[in-house]
Design a protein around this nucleic acid. Sequence first.
DNA 1: CATCAAGCGGATATGGAATATCCGCTTGCC
DNA 2: GGCAAGCGGATATTCCATATCCGCTTGATG
Lengths: 227, 227
Amino acid sequence: MYRDDMSDGDRAHPPLRKDAAANRERLLRAASDLFAERGLEVTLNDIAHHAGVGVGTAYRRFANKEEVIDALLEERMAGVEDVAREAAADPDPWDGVVHFLEGALALQHGDRGLAEMMNNPVLGDARVDEVRERIAPIVTEIVERAKAAGVVRPDLDQSDLIFVQLALSTVMERTQVLAPDLYRRYLALFLDGIRTDRETLTTLPTRALSSQETHEVMTRGRRRARS
Amino acid sequence: MYRDDMSDGDRAHPPLRKDAAANRERLLRAASDLFAERGLEVTLNDIAHHAGVGVGTAYRRFANKEEVIDALLEERMAGVEDVAREAAADPDPWDGVVHFLEGALALQHGDRGLAEMMNNPVLGDARVDEVRERIAPIVTEIVERAKAAGVVRPDLDQSDLIFVQLALSTVMERTQVLAPDLYRRYLALFLDGIRTDRETLTTLPTRALSSQETHEVMTRGRRRARS
DNA sequence: CATCAAGCGGATATGGAATATCCGCTTGCC
DNA sequence: GGCAAGCGGATATTCCATATCCGCTTGATG
């Protein structure tokens, strides 16, 4: 199985006219912005508008939204893979674990679309799944190495990092506006729960939210009602 | 005996005919089932069908879905309040903390609608908010008591229980089908991160998911695509 | 047991939102 | 200068949830 040899969408088509190619780029950049900012729910019409081109142009270049997502987000997921590799390569096994979680979450922090992609089993099916499968063994390696070094509890499992990441991403999403870094507080708590070194407590990196703020976060959601 | 004048929702209405009152009950029971099972996204039409009555009947009794939700879920939220009170009354301050988290999550575990209600700031506005405000001080008490007793880390905050609950509810929802109890594993990890007693590790209550299972969970979501 | 308002069912109208197309006009390219 | 390629964006299409309407049925009442 080889990677797509042609640089990008050119395939067997006659090359795009200069203006058309430029518009394609503007569309991709607009999509990138919007996905990061608002998540994958933006419409192709939104993207066209944001790019300053007509809807028709958008639909002439991309059959549908998934095609745009695929074009953009496989590369983003590959970024997660890089983080995992870096983490696995970290000389200190414990730092590796921390590095992976912090890195993966930081990426999602800057890109809501990526977060949705990673944590929702919905869009951008095939290619993203493939990346996920490439990442899994690296995570296993990170965890096994830390266990072997005795720095994490022996009953920790590779899948635990995935689910903790999932859990924290929810906190992240929900507090993104009011307290964008709050998720790091809970990451720290979790890390203190998996370390073998039980002597010291990590200093929590973020202050907790006040009652008032908590109430606001749990109350004013921006996620649209289904109804 | 008869003549239950304005005891509940009747207001200034003449009392319902016997069959109509029965249907109203069936509708509420059906709604309760469906909310618990499928969450708040079910339609009033769904509810009517499940209750074995026509759609018209449903709309004659309830102006819209929110009215049904309000009728049912304020009481469910009150259940959470009870759990908080029990927890605050637990003789052991540490057990109180555990009790609250386990209890709140267990309630959500059996009722998807309740989970959505608690964690989504969307539907059933006014009354649920009010309950939330009644719960907040109890949670504060639980946490403060535990801190005073020295059983949890001093930098723990009342709001932390809320956000941990939020984080875990995501795991719970995502694994409900394949591994309904998995969330308890992560609850245990968090608890180990919160305790002051750093000598022992809690035995994790649930086995971790295999790679295969993890992949399945992260892949086959049932949450509808926005697209 | 006759009467009739209250209640019922469910086909269907309404509304809204996202997706996708069409067509008259413009523009890069040879 | 000619014309295929490209463009804009109004609009058709699809889908789905919400809500209504109306001819038929039924419980309550005298």
